[in-house]
Structure formats: structure tokens, C-alpha cells
Design a protein around this nucleic acid. Structure first.
Lengths: 250, 250
DNA sequence: CTATCATTGTGTCATTTAAACACATTAATT
DNA sequence: AATTAATGTGTTTAAATGACACAATGATAG
């Protein structure tokens, strides 16, 4: 069975695809989940197609389950990429040619309009898994990411831009950090997303003013210096803040 | 020639549509451009389909040129609506049935994923023009809009929500107001979009601080009371503000 | 086992921004 | 010429932000 007939049988909608920018936080770095194409060895965002009875959100959830093993992922649509030329030279098609298939027969050798999502996941819980076009699925720190296939680099840039904007009116962190975390860790997350340093004391004051954190008695030991307190998110207030929005800006 | 064959010949992409929430400001009211369906007399947002060599933005621009006669319209993608059930009972299909066509043959009797745009236009320059499904194209003040076809009411709500958000980080008004306008007019525009009243003096101070307005010597006479000064947008700074964003929130 | 180090915990002060409010001015109307 | 209702231009107060200082402490080095 070739890819073509497989896709035909599964009844994906023509012309519509989705790409996910999956953010994780590890080692005090913001990382993105990428796939390495089998033949061209180029890097790509995880993506997929939409079944006849799926919404985009359902499709993205399905794709991310396949790539990470995770369910209940924080997902946000941020832009549709629809330049008619965007999928003209698709490495996935090239892969098929390299492997002997007739490119005219390939189901995905067509124009695609792609809906961009970004996802926030707990790095430690994800299990990166390649898809049928790729031989490797791995986390890459943001600064190490260079060229990606098609317009995926542009998609990544827009995702980051949107994520930064989100910080201005929604809390973030619950989806990216472990259950218990320290204030310096949370600050580092914000700094990484924003790409700039913040004042430690002002950050804490502002963050606490949101009322979405509960301070624990417990401290995080093992670091080389004074042990910081651990915090957890107050889920009830966190949800409220997601709904009602925050104020101010960074 | 029936609608079906017409659409076939023009080679629209299957499954993909777009809907536009066109905002205009007139009579101190925010108004939205709506179409009345020929047969069912229900109201709908102007929309259309995407040609094989068009981007979504190009398609939306083409559609809005047809509905308003305007070019160079401010356009912003805000969300994709992809519920598999959203276009199950499409009045446009009903129209075809009423007019004797075979619904199974109708090109648009299929599932559509619709990309939502909102547009900001100069009310006085637009010439509302119905499409082939509608017998009337007209402006409706926001409070008078009730039920719309399909999920168009939901699309309108989301557009408004996004427009409100835009006020927090981008200037607005150039696309909605005449070239020369008064501060009270600009304020009324903001109040209408936000759905709440603002303090006259604080509004002016904040708006002037953006540095995107040029105050003219001229005043607007003809009102019943003290004549307010006229302003124009400083286009260079306005563009800069669109690019770089503003600060604070309303 | 004590001193050192680097980091965290907590707070102050000055500046900027936002919110609430007051009074003089003026174009049209009576 | 007086009246009216809106505009022009402030001030005063409170809140948020930005810049900065010093004590406390867990691990490490000697």
C-alpha cells in the first residue's frame, strides 16, 4: 500500500492541512518539537490533515497525540497560511519521488492551505514520535532552529509572536511547567518567551498580584544556593484568568 | 447556466470558504454589512470561495470589492470555523432546492471550513451590492442584528471580540472614519466598539499621547454647540504604530 | 566546621500611568 | 444679548511600574 491510497481511504479533506508549533520548556530553554524528513533530512513542523468528520481542533489533537502521546494539550489556532505557492516544492513529495512513487499520483501533491496552531506541553511528559514522512522527532531549542521546509519557519515565527501577545492578557505556565515550580523557573519561562530579561522582584510582585499562584511551605533543594519556595497554580483562579483575561503588559 | 456549473468552471477550492464581518461607522453607530438570502430571507455575512491561484487574503479582497466597490480594505483574519456540522443546513442550498435544482448536484452542498475575516471600511464610500444568493445587501447596526444563517452569529461575535482586543495594541480609526474627524467622533467610535463609555478628557490625553493625530486649525461647525477641532491621522506615525503596536489597555 | 558564594526573600523610593473630577470657552439657538 | 450644551484645558489623587538595597540561606570550598 502506498501513501497515496492510504490517504485516499482515510478520506482527508483536500487542500486543507494543519501545522503545529509545539512548545516545551526544559533546561531553562524554550524548545520546539520538530520532525526530520526521511530522505531530504530537512526539518519540519509536525502537521497533518483533516478527516471528513473532524474539526480542525480535533484533527490537531489527534496529530499531537500521535507525535507526543499526550492528550488534553493546550492548543491555539493563530493564523492560516494560504499563499498559493507555499506548497509548490514539498519535500514530502520529493520523498515519494526518491522512493520511486509517481508524484502526480501522490494525494498530497496538491495545493494546501494550512492552519497554524501552537501547543503548550509538559516537556517531561511528551514522547516524541516521528510520522511516516520522518525518521526522527525531536525537541530543538529555539536558537538552534534554522531553515525549515516550506514556510514552516514563518509559521514558527508567527506562533512565537502570538504566544508573546498572549502573555499580555492570559496567564501561561500551567501547560509548560511541572506541577510544582519555583518563581525563578516561572520567570525564566517568561523571559525565554519574551526574549528579554525581567527584574526578579518586579516580576514576582506582578505575578503574585494575579492571584493565580499558591505558595507552598516546601522549598526546592538541590540547587547550589538558597532554596527557593515551590508554587502551584490555583487552578480555579487560573481558569478564571484564562476566561476573563489579565491586564497590563510586559 | 446554473450556479453549480458556474462554480465548477471557476475552479474554487473544495471545502474552503471565507466569511467577512465588515464594520462601518455611521450615525455614531457601529454597523455590519449583511446580505438577505433570496428565498429564505435570512441574513448572512458576505462570503465567498477561494480560486485555485488565490490566497485567502486575495479572495477576501475580491469578495469585498464585489460587495462594496472598495479596494484596499483593512482586513484581518481572526479565526477558522471548522465544526463538521456547521454547514449541514445551508440556506444557499435551500435556495437552490426552492428554485428547482438538484441539491446533490450543487457544488456547495458540501462541508465547508470557513476562514473568518473582519474588515474596516469607510461607511460613506461603500456601495452595498448583493451577491447571487441574496436580494439585498445592507448595513445593520450591531444591536439590531439577531439571528444569522449557519454559525454566522458566532463568527460576528468572535470578530467583535478580536476587534476589541486589537484596540489594546493597535490604533484604529483610519479605516472607519472620514479623512477629517473630531475627537468626540473618534471617542464615540472607541466607545461603540468597546460597548462602554469613556471619560472625554482621559480619552483625549491618551489618544494624543500616541502621536498619531494631527490637530488642524479648522473646526467642525454646524453642530448645535461649541465647534470641535478637526483632526487627521498622521499616516507615517499611524503605520509605525500599526507595526510596532501600542501599549496599555482600555 | 567555618567562611564564602551565589542566589533567594523582602522591602523602599521615585517615576510614570491611569482615574476622577472642575471650570472656563464658544457656536448655535432663542 | 442671554441661554444652552457641548468642547478646551487643566488639577488632584490613586495605582502601577521601574530601579534599586540589603538581609537570609543552602551548598560548596577550604
Amino acid at each position: 500500500m502506498n501513501q497515496d491510497s492510504k490517504f485516499q481511504r482515510e478520506k482527508f479533506l483536500n487542500h486543507i492541512s494543519l501545522d503545529c508549533v509545539v512548545f516545551g520548556f526544559h533546561d531553562n530553554q524554550l524548545k520546539v518539537l520538530l520532525l526530520r524528513m526521511k530522505f531530504t533530512k530537512e526539518w519540519a513542523l509536525p502537521g497533518g490533515f483533516v478527516l471528513e468528520d473532524e474539526s480542525l481542533e480535533t484533527a490537531a489533537t489527534r496529530v499531537l497525540k500521535e507525535r507526543t502521546g499526550l492528550e488534553d494539550i493546550f492548543l491555539k489556532q493563530f493564523k492560516v497560511f494560504s499563499d498559493p505557492q507555499r506548497s509548490k516544492t514539498n519535500p514530502a513529495v520529493q520523498d515519494l519521488i526518491d522512493s520511486g512513487a509517481d508524484p502526480d499520483q501522490a494525494w498530497f501533491n496538491q495545493r494546501f492551505i494550512s492552519v497554524g496552531f501552537y501547543a503548550l506541553v509538559d516537556f517531561s511528559k511528551a514522547e516524541p514520535t516521528p510520522d511516516s514522512f520522518s525518521d526522527l522527532c525531536a525537541w530543538k531549542p529555539l536558537p538552534e532552529i534554522n531553515k525549515l521546509i516550506l514556510d514552516h519557519r514563518q509559521i514558527l515565527n508567527k506562533a512565537l509572536e502570538n504566544l508573546r501577545m498572549q502573555l499580555n492578557y492570559q496567564p501561561i505556565g500551567y501547560n509548560l511547567l511541572p506541577d510544582k515550580f519555583t518563581m525563578p523557573e516561572l520567570q525564566k519561562l517568561y523571559e525565554t518567551i519574551l526574549g528579554k530579561e525581567l527584574d526578579r522582584r518586579n516580576f514576582q510582585r506582578k505575578m503574585l498580584s494575579y492571584g493565580i499562584l499558591n505558595k507552598l511551605e516546601e522549598r526546592k533543594t538541590g540547587g547550589a544556593h538558597k532554596a527557593p519556595f515551590l508554587f502551584v497554580f490555583d487552578l480555579e483562579n487560573y481558569q478564571k484568568a484564562l476566561q476573563n483575561g489579565l491586564y497590563g503588559g510586559w
